[in-house]
Design a protein around this nucleic acid. Structure first.
Lengths: 226, 226
DNA sequence: ATATTTTTGGACAGTCTTGTCTAATATGTC
DNA sequence: GACATATTAGACAAGACTGTCCAAAAATAT
C-alpha cells in the first residue's frame, strides 16, 4: 500500500503499514469484527506495536478514517481540477473526466475502503464522518455543480439546477458500479469505459443544449415540440 | 413490526419478534457486533427462547436475511405491477411510479434493513445473498427494463438499450437518497416527491421520443440532428 | 382441572478479545 | 562499541459472548 515516496522501513513505515492493515480489516470485518491481532498480523507487526503507535482500537479506527478521508479528498479535487471547462468535444472530454472519476475516486483502494467504512460504521460513529461529509463528497458535489453551471453559462448545457445535475451525473456514473462494488468484484477496463460512456451519453441527452451552434432553427424546434 | 394480520401472541409471535429484533440488531451493529442477549432483550424474550427457535446465531442470521429478502421482493414486484404501461400523461404517471418505488422499496423498513445487511455482510456471506441478487434487484431490473422496452416499442420512449435505461432510471431515483440513507436520516414527504419528479424529468429529457405522435417528420429530424 | 408445550432466569464452561506488563531482542545513533 | 529507542513474543487479568443445561413458572391445549 505504501507508495514509493513513503518510507518503506523504520518507525514511520510500520505506522503506515498498521494504518493500511487497519483500513482493510475494518472494511472487511466491520469495527467489532476486526481484532487487533488480525490487524497486527496483516501489518506484519506485533500486537504491542499497534498499541504503541495508536493507543487503542478506537484511536486506531479514528486514525484510519481521517487518514483515508484525507487521501480521498486530495484525489477527488485533483480529478475535479481536470474538468473540461472549455471543451472542444464535450461528450468525449466529459467521458474521459467520468473515467478519471471512476478510476481515481470510486474504484481506487482508498475510495472503496472509505465508502465501505461509511456504510458499515457511519451510523455508529457519526462524528468521525462529519469531515467526510463536509470536506469530502459534499464539497465535490458543489464544486462539480459549479463546473456544470459554468458550462451552462458558456452555452454548452441547458439546466435549471446545477446541483441536481451534479448529483445526477454522479448517480449515472455510479449506476453500473453498484453491484460490483457491493460484492467486491473488480471492474475490467473496457467495462469501465463503457460505463462512463453510457452515463455521459444519457447525461448529455438530458442536458445538452439543443439549439444549433450555427443557427437557430426556432420554427423547426417549436414544430417538433408542439 | 408484526402487522395486524400476523399473530401478536403465542409461539409464532415470539418467533417473528425475534426475527425483527435480529434484523434491527444485525443492521445496526453488524453480524459480529450484534449479540444474542441484545436481540433477546429487544425482542422482549429470554435468550434461551432465541436458541429454541433458531438454533444459533448463524441460523438466526440466515433466517433474517431470507425472510427480509422475501418481503422485499414481494413488495418490489407489487410496485412493478403498477408500472404505467399505457400512460396518458407519461411524466406524471412515471413520477407516481417512482414515488411508489421510493416509498415501498427504497425507504421502507425492510428495504433499508436489507440494503444495510447487504452492505455490511454481503462480502462475508456471499451465499446468503445469491438469492437477493438473483430473485431480488436483479429481477426487478430486468423486469423494469422489459417495461421500458414496451414503452419504447409503443412509441413513448427512444432508447437503444432498455437494460441500461432501467439501471439509470433507478440510479436517478436513488441519486438524492444516497446521503440520507447512509446516515439514517428520514425523508420528508415533499422532498421525496421532489426527488421523484427530478429523476423522472431528467430521465424523460434523455429518453422521451422526440418525434411527433401524429406524423413522422423524418426529414426535419435528420436536418436537426445532422 | 390436568397434561403438554413453551418460556424463563440463572448458572455454567469454553472461547475470544482487549489492553497491560515484562524481559528479551532488534534497530539505529553517536 | 555503547547507548537509546523501537519492537517482539509471550504471559496475564478482566470482561464479553456463545451455546448448553436445568428446574421453576407460565401459557396453551385437551
Amino acid at each position: 500500500m505504501a507508495t514509493d515516496t513513503l518510507p518503506t522501513r523504520g518507525h514511520a513505515a510500520k505506522r503506515l503499514s498498521i494504518l493500511d492493515a487497519g483500513a482493510r480489516a475494518f472494511c472487511r470485518e466491520g469495527y467489532a469484527g476486526a481484532n487487533i491481532d488480525m490487524i497486527a498480523a496483516e501489518a506484519g507487526v506485533s500486537r504491542q506495536t499497534v498499541y504503541n503507535h495508536y493507543g487503542d482500537k478506537d484511536k486506531l479506527f479514528a486514525a484510519v478514517v481521517t487518514e483515508i478521508t484525507q487521501r480521498c479528498n486530495a484525489r477527488s479535487f485533483e480529478v475535479l481540477a481536470s474538468f473540461p471547462d472549455q471543451p472542444t468535444d464535450l461528450e468525449k472530454e466529459l467521458t474521459c473526466f467520468a473515467e478519471r472519476l471512476i478510476v481515481n475516486c470510486l474504484c481506487d483502494q482508498d475510495g472503496k475502503f472509505l465508502r465501505k467504512l461509511i456504510q458499515r460504521e457511519g451510523e455508529r460513529h457519526p462524528h468521525l464522518f462529519a469531515s467526510w461529509r463536509n470536506d469530502g463528497p459534499g464539497k465535490v458535489w458543489s464544486a462539480l455543480a459549479a463546473r456544470f453551471a459554468r458550462l451552462a453559462y458558456a452555452g454548452y448545457l441547458d439546466m435549471e439546477n446545477p446541483d441536481v445535475a451534479a448529483r445526477q451525473f454522479l448517480a449515472l456514473v455510479n449506476a453500473e458500479l453498484q453491484m460490483p462494488a457491493l460484492f467486491g468484484e473488480k471492474l475490467e477496463n473496457d467495462r469501465l469505459q463503457e460505463t462512463a460512456a453510457c452515463a455521459v451519453k444519457t447525461f448529455l441527452r438530458a442536458y445538452r443544449k439543443r439549439e444549433m451552434h450555427t443557427k437557430e432553427p426556432a420554427h423547426l424546434e417549436s414544430a417538433l415540440r408542439g
